[in-house]
Design a protein around this nucleic acid. Structure first.
Lengths: 130, 130
DNA sequence: CTTCTTATTGATAATGATTGTCAACATCAC
DNA sequence: GTGATGTTGACAATCATTATCAATAAGAAG
């Protein structure tokens, strides 16, 4: 039986308040600063549950850290991520879906899945660098 | 000044002998089994050098481990990876390159890069599962 | 070939994210 | 309200990766 706890809600709310990918550690720090004494282990568990349930997307940063972001559930999509500030935009990638399937089939691979993420500099960060 | 050592060559050779993505730990075990007493730290350093020099590709496994594979240098390409046995095929992805650029530009993002990997079951593993 | 400089090695300690443990606690069906 | 049990959280444990640093060996110079 799954129980609803204020800790899980707090993690979910904190995640949805972010518009960028954040690590479990960062989210834990945010919750600590807000005064909500949610344990680190609980943050990890809540994020894992969210990701498993489709309420969040996860990816590995270049440093090997696991990052999470709230996402629109039930819909397959990918991300356009600013490598400077982390701002993230959900994007559709129908052409890529087709291409991935075709390439997998052409090589005899079955049950294809794919990891597709685009990194760049968002408009604000582009301006800041130039 | 960069010096050539037999340890670096051993790591490079061991990596090229693999046709799948392997972790630094696995490669270290292989070298140990071969009788070559190459240190773990050296394996990590050699792999980092290879990746930086374009002689190897790296990606993060779902468990957060860093995996490496020898690759054809100087050419941009992606991978089709068996999620069961790890066998890897290099693939071209011109349509995706164009798509990534277009999507980034449409959202005002500059200097786009992308992570594109396709996972599936290779012919052998597909047969084994069914 | 010998010597000298210094990049490299490797055993080990340190780091840091993530997961396991388990007693105390809180949720929800009844 | 009450009890069975899912959940929490402080802390220990794990595991990949990185830093440390004395000992070694590659390569330049003579």
């Amino acid at each position: 039986m799954r129980r609803n706890t204020w800790q899980r809600d707090a993690v979910k709310a904190a995640l949805e308040a972010q518009d960028a990918f954040v690590s479990a550690q960062q989210l834990h720090a945010v919750l600590r600063d807000e005064g909500t004494g949610v344990g680190l282990a609980t943050v990890y568990r809540a994020l894992a549950d969210l990701a498993a349930g489709g309420g969040a997307d996860s990816l590995q940063s270049a440093e090997g850290e696991a990052l999470y972001r709230a996402c629109t559930p039930g819909q397959h999509h990918h991300h356009l991520i600013c490598r400077n500030c982390g701002v993230t935009v959900e994007i559709e990638a129908d052409p890529v879906e087709q291409w991935a399937k075709a390439v997998a089939a052409a090589n005899g691979f079955t049950r294809p899945e794919h990891v597709v993420d685009v990194f760049g500099l968002c408009p604000a960060c582009s301006a800041a660098v130039s």
